[in-house]
């Protein structure tokens, strides 16, 4: 394994009941990188990050995180190893207020952001601290979903479509946040359909189709591959 590879996924297969979703996914994420999984709906992007997080019951292959094989670990053990997820549907709890949602994930390692630092990143959250989590706007809920995993000290963040359904101005704010997290040394695996957004933050792209990775593109060569990417994504 490459010395600097924080996460290495090899031959990952996953099933939901009878449905075989992933057919051998191979990806690698190095320390400090922002890597994006691109692909159309149903390509297997979300299942890939859920499998990395241990949230898909039936999975096979190899997932190595910081040298530890985690394919058979339960999700709580994977979280404690330093991986955190911001799920596609945001996962804000309606029975908890903003503060409780923010403080819900336990600290797994030292080095996480303080609540004040999170409020600096997302000032809206401070103003709405006592509101019920699901009463927030879509953008604020997304900020909350990202903010709460920054507290935990996890160094690998799995962000599933953080821009889905959001206004352009909020997307810009999330883009700036991801850039700041990258500068702060976080490693990020991003699932996106919004290629324009991903281009503002990503170092590398994996393109998925039919439960497999079908291409890998470096950000430096992005310009040369725009047409191909548009074709992959059906734009």
């Amino acid at each position: 394994m490459d010395k600097s590879a924080m996460l290495k996924v090899s031959g990952l297969q996953a099933w939901y009941g009878e449905s075989h979703i992933l057919h051998g996914v191979d990806i690698e994420v190095r320390q400090g990188e922002v890597v994006t999984l691109l692909g159309r709906n149903g390509a297997g992007k979300t299942t890939t990050i859920k499998s990395i997080m241990g949230m898909v019951a039936e999975r096979e292959g190899s997932i190595s995180f910081n040298g530890h094989e985690t394919i058979n670990w339960p999700s709580n053990r994977i979280a404690k190893a330093g991986i955190a997820i911001c799920p596609e549907e945001r996962g804000i709890f309606s029975s908890l207020n903003v503060e409780e949602n923010l403080l819900l994930p336990p600290t797994v390692q030292p080095g996480g952001l303080s609540v004040e630092e999170i409020f600096t990143l997302f000032p809206n959250l401070k103003e709405r601290i006592t509101s019920q989590g699901t009463k927030l706007s879509g953008g604020e809920q997304q900020m909350l979903a990202i903010g709460r995993i920054l507290r935990t000290g996890a160094r690998l963040l799995l962000l599933d479509e953080p821009t889905e359904g959001l206004a352009p101005v909020i997307i810009q704010q999330i883009s700036r946040t991801i850039s700041r997290l990258k500068e702060a040394g976080f490693t990020i695996l991003l699932v996106e359909q919004n290629f324009r957004f991903a281009a503002t933050v990503a170092d590398r792209y994996y393109v998925m189709e039919g439960g497999k990775v079908i291409d890998e593109i470096d950000n430096a060569h992005l310009e040369q591959h725009v047409d191909k990417l548009n074709e992959y994504l059906g734009v």
Binding site: M55, A79, A84, S95, L96, L103, T152
Partner: peptide, 24 residues
């Protein structure tokens, strides 16, 4: 309390609470 918020959250979405590192 914090413990109570774990309980309430696990009632809504146990899989996500587990993925935050809590043994649901």
């Amino acid at each position: 309390t914090r413990l109570g918020s774990y309980l309430r959250a696990a009632t809504e979405n146990p899989a996500l609470v587990q993925a935050f590192g809590i043994n649901v």
